[in-house]
Design a binder for these strands. Structure first.
Lengths: 345, 345
DNA sequence: GCGCCGCATGACAGCGCTTGCATAGCCTAC
DNA sequence: GTAGGCTATGCAAGCGCTGTCATGCGGCGC
């Protein structure tokens, strides 16, 4: 009971008056051990606050009961945090531990793919939230461990993602139905080397415009320097002689920033300009932002489930999963403003 | 180069034409190995994409090069995510891995303290973001591993935290200086069993009012049912016959919610009501929220540094650290509204 | 020219656990 | 009564690494 040396299985064995093998079997619920012995072992283990050393156990079995997640960008981002919570739940239920590898910039990225630190230190790897280059994909193949891709479609490997094209088409159609004819796609510049699914999202935007016969001229695209570059977006709109009446943004975070910048110059959503987000960010509600919500928890849970299956030596039921998105209508999207009532810009 | 079986040290040894011991030494940069041999070993290791098995290494050395963090509440919360990023940085630089244990509700809490899963599976434990009961504190003592408390003061153990009392006093004084005489402390109900530092924050509020001679009557306290209960707070204020002119809130998240609810009923900050947050949340800027910023990164970095020191068998320079907070003034705090211009409520 | 020292390396035990195989005890069947 | 089988347990090897001790080899001193 003292905080001294953590106990080993041998101590439990001695206390229970059995051999180490029996302790090992009893703790893992083997039917080979008699119920009485099992009870005795469990009691002894409890009294000693015994916990199995996963290192030793892993060495012996070759399975570590640990799954690694490779996240792009900070853990503190809404998407990564949510994904990790969902993954944690699934792993925890299966008595697996979660190990995190994070890549924030090109240097960390290079380092990860050179050293492959996850190698031999997890039973599977979930690659979350950023698209890999083909070279990196190959390199991961050398890991010799099961891989699951999250939020990116990979045809020859297990992956779970949303259908970005279809999602943006739905959102764009919503705005078209509200009467908008001049729409802009608003995106944030990618951080160095990181490719998110923006391309697919833009493709969806263009496809839907085309379907509505609005593809005579090149689509209007506004690029912000970062996720907090709403000010630049609003400036661009104010400076335009044919400003859009609705924005389809690449992410909720960017939309938040745009809304903030709009408020500062007295532009209201949706009265002056409709704004549609993308993500289903937890704060979207507070900003009253209409958005295309992706089922983040579902993505995480699914990825973890597949990873657990693979770690256990199985093959997933469905190697590639496309999760559905949902158009959440709040206050920032509405009918086209009456041209007469538009504020002079 | 194929994705088949991960290589072992023995294979590297064979390829480099040396013994396993030499490989081990060379990889860890031992001066006992000649430079030429080291180079040969490193090359062989690289060719095989060799990575040491931390399980085997840990078994042999008794040190796992892994530090566990116990977080209260979701990883996806701003505080936890930020803390984890900072901790990750520090651990990563020292070639340590990060293991996460999360406690979200009473069941998970009980489970953690019963099973002590971190035992023997990390070299140190950082207890972040929630206060433990004395019983739990004792139980952790049985872990037999170094502990570091983050965001809570523990006198007989290494801990890093902010001085909640002093921080709130500063914020309260700021509002008093602006002429406010009727202040309310706004807090969110604690989730089941979770005690944050709210008590200290409230004590600071009360102490500063007393110092200003405003303690004739009991302090005004408004309790929201949750972090998103701003609506209830605003309703309570509207229903009051002597409403406060300034709010000192318990957290930025709650302040956001209050600001949202205020906007919905046409109350402006600070013209109608000043609102002061607490945390320095990443979104505080977008809400133009004045707040008491705690140095989250610093807290995380410091906790990790101490944990690394302890894991290495050392003793920390400063066992108990109080980190400074900073009053960040934005737009939601201002002078007392002129009574004549207050909106009829 | 021989012994000794120091450097570079190898052999080997052991970390704590799992698991195949051996064993002991008991029951059943003929 | 004995062979055979079944159940409950123990023994021991081995997972991949680290670290201690032993060894071999060249150079130096006298």
């Amino acid at each position: 009971m003292s905080g001294s040396e953590p106990s080993t299985m041998a101590e439990v064995a001695e206390r229970a008056g059995v051999s180490v093998s029996t302790v090992s079997r009893a703790l893992r619920g083997s039917p080979l051990v008699s119920p009485e012995t099992t009870a005795r072992v469990l009691a002894a283990a409890q009294e000693l606050s015994f916990a199995v050393s996963r290192a030793a156990s892993g060495l012996a079995t070759g399975r570590l009961n640990r799954i690694a997640v490779l996240v792009g960008g900070p853990v503190a981002s809404w998407f990564n945090g949510s994904i990790l919570d969902a993954i944690y739940d699934a792993l925890h239920a299966a008595d697996y531990e979660l190990s995190i590898f994070r890549i924030r910039d090109q240097a960390e990225r290079d380092e990860f793919f050179t050293a492959l630190p996850a190698r031999r230190n997890a039973d599977a790897l979930i690659v979350a939230s950023f698209a890999l280059t083909p070279g990196e994909r190959d390199r991961l193949g050398e890991l010799g461990m099961p891989l699951v891709y999250l939020n990116q479609r990979v045809d020859d490997a297990p992956s779970v993602s949303i259908d970005d094209v279809a999602a943006v088409r739905t959102g764009t159609r919503h705005l078209l139905n509200l009467g908008h004819r001049r729409l802009a796609f608003v995106q944030a510049q990618n951080a160095t080397g990181f490719v998110y699914s923006a391309q697919d999202r833009f493709d969806g935007f263009r496809a839907e415009l085309a379907a509505a016969g609005l593809d005579q001229e090149p689509p209007l695209v506004i690029t912000a320097p970062s996720l907090t570059g709403g000010q630049d977006v609003v400036s661009a709109i104010l400076a335009s002689d044919r400003p859009p009446t609705a924005l389809v943004t690449d992410s909720d975070e960017l939309a938040f920033s745009v809304l903030g910048a709009m408020a500062r110059v007295g532009l209201r959503a949706p009265e002056d300009l409709s704004v549609l987000g993308f993500d289903g960010h937890a704060m979207a509600d507070r900003f009253e932002l209409s958005t295309l919500a992706q089922p983040v928890e579902y993505l995480g849970t699914l990825a973890a489930t597949i990873a657990l299956t693979l770690a256990g030596g199985g093959t997933p039921d469905r190697p590639v999963v496309l999760a559905p998105t949902r158009l959440v209508l709040r206050r920032t999207t509405g009918r086209v403003p009456d041209p007469a009532s538009r504020p002079a810009s």
